[in-house]
């Protein structure tokens, strides 16, 4: 069973749905969501840090700390906090969706 996500929407939900894949799992988001929002709402985390493999879930949300990197299927790196979701987008984290 997917772990209960920590983040929660507080309104503004009358938006078109957008479908993406995170680590191969189908995720439904709303138009205007960032990739990080989509990941956080689905209990996921972003890439593990390079040193002690602790998972990350963003920190600053303003494109400054760089702890929210994800990768697209053509190996392009994205900052999840300032990339908007797009229909059919495929992203990969290294966290394998475990844990939270």
């Amino acid at each position: 069973m997917a772990p209960r996500p920590r983040a929660k929407r507080l309104g503004a939900i009358d938006r078109r749905s957008v479908h993406l894949q995170v680590d191969g799992i189908a995720v439904q988001a709303l138009e205007g969501d960032t990739v990080l929002t989509a990941i956080l709402l689905h209990g996921g985390q972003t890439g593990a840090d390079a040193f002690n493999q602790t998972k990350q879930a963003g920190f600053c949300l303003m494109g400054a700390c760089q702890s929210c990197w994800v990768w697209t299927s053509n190996a392009q790196r994205l900052r999840a906090c300032d990339a908007e979701v797009k229909e059919g987008l495929e992203v990969f984290t290294t966290s394998k969706g475990a844990g939270w």
Binding site: A7, K8, L10, I13, T37, F59, C60, L61
Partner: peptide
């Protein structure tokens, strides 16, 4: 998260972390 991050989630994503 940073405080600013929590506010950005609220203001621009209608989200609490």
């Amino acid at each position: 998260y940073s405080l600013g991050g929590a506010q950005i989630a609220l203001k621009s994503q209608a989200l609490t972390l």
